[in-house]
Design a protein around this nucleic acid. Structure first.
Lengths: 232, 232
DNA sequence: CTAAATTAATAGTATTACTATTATAAAAGA
DNA sequence: TCTTTTATAATAGTAATACTATTAATTTAG
């Protein structure tokens, strides 16, 4: 069973829907390659236009500015990740199992079935999320962007994980904050492990398996605290 | 007892030491006001020069670019915070008490003695940390910056907190990652609570007291997991 | 087959980030 | 004291970036 290839993206994210033209689809694909390669700060519409190839003005007809393009790409990822979580936890019986699968997905420990979907490199996209995703909301215009519902896919993912936590322990009062914590930490600990190992305990191995273990330990100890008998 | 007003800042952070001239000190002060007001993206050396007032070129004689200036300001904050943690946990007997004080400091729950130090608005600085601090390392030049030791104050703080965790439970294997997690989450949960409340459990009250409670719960449940009898 | 609408390219402008050079003021040495 | 060196800031730029108004070309519709 495959993913429905074209998630319905929020219309505020673009000026023209990039899914509806060849040049638009290529724009998304090349954006992901280029943001990954240059980093978001050095990424420009001019460089993107050269890659496609087209003109700068054409890119501006699709996206208001490069921040909106990043928001689009990041929203696409959260959409995909939410679907992954939904699909892969769907048939599991215990919430403990579901939580373990979530942490596996977040730390990229799944078998490499995907890698490329809809002509988009998921490896590159994952790296973009690690490096750039928080820049999408850490702005002076968060509130406005939030009113346009640009962060809906992230909220949906957070709510889905939160509900599974609630299943595991209905008395735990911080399920949403714990969900956003593990999502953010899956990416931050990955980044720290690679670039600032002193901020982690994974300096030697530099393996995402360790981040997975850390997240499991964090979540289960938090959720099991006041509950006497639960699975692990 | 006051803080030694001039922390020794890493020399790679500046071209000229802003502490050693009036115009330099004013530059730091006005930078903090302006970055807080405009956000880092809209902040420019030209606007800063107008505020000081001086010329753009003069600002460039002190800092290579605006990212370095942000790095300076953020490093100053970590320095200050590390000192706060050191000073306020120094005389405490139990590590449990120390941890509680750390979470209070991180969530800005201390009595408002400080607010302004060395002519710098700590409130503004705290807000800059919340909005901008991760942008300091989320770049393509992290590794280079790290080689220059630009992140030392953050690492020091993380190491200090980590050691207190280790005191509390010598068997816990993730003290550093737990330390970086609570530092980051103190700021992220604050930001989420204010701007994206769906990602937290603090939508109604919007009080930092809740973030403090969440962090305490997270840390103590993690650290107490395998240890049978410890204080709370 | 023409008119309308869509789409992309051309050719700009304002702003930003940054620098080479010059001017001025302070300090040091004779 | 006076000159020379040094430190510091201002002037006046440039290259690149972000963005837009207008024109040209193509497609679609009646």
């Amino acid at each position: 069973m495959n993913w429905e290839l074209h998630p319905k993206m929020n219309e505020k994210l673009y000026l023209r829907n990039p899914e509806q033209s060849e040049i638009g689809k290529n724009m998304i694909k090349k954006s992901i390659n280029l943001i990954r390669k240059l980093g978001f700060e050095a990424f420009t519409f001019k460089k993107l236009a050269e890659e496609i190839p087209t003109t700068e003005a054409t890119v501006y007809r699709y996206f208001e500015n490069k921040h909106r393009l990043l928001s689009y790409v990041v929203a696409w990822y959260w959409h995909w990740l939410d679907y992954q979580v939904m699909f892969k936890t769907n048939n599991l019986k215990s919430s403990a199992e579901k939580i373990k699968v979530i942490n596996q997905i977040l730390t990229w420990q799944m078998d490499e079935e995907h890698t490329v979907i809809d002509d988009i490199s998921l490896e590159d996209l994952h790296q973009i999320i690690i490096y750039e995703s928080s820049k999408v909301y850490l702005t002076k215009h968060v509130t406005e962007d939030n009113q346009y519902q640009l962060f809906k896919p992230y909220k949906n993912l957070c709510a889905r994980i939160s509900n599974i936590f609630k299943d595991f322990n209905p008395d735990y009062p911080y399920t949403r904050s714990l969900a956003s914590t593990i999502i953010e930490m899956a990416h931050f600990q990955d980044f720290f492990m690679t670039h600032l190992p002193a901020l982690t305990d994974f300096a030697e191995t530099k393996s995402l398996k360790n981040v997975n273990d850390f997240l499991n330990s964090l979540v289960f100890s938090a959720l099991e605290k006041k509950v006497k008998a639960t699975s692990n």
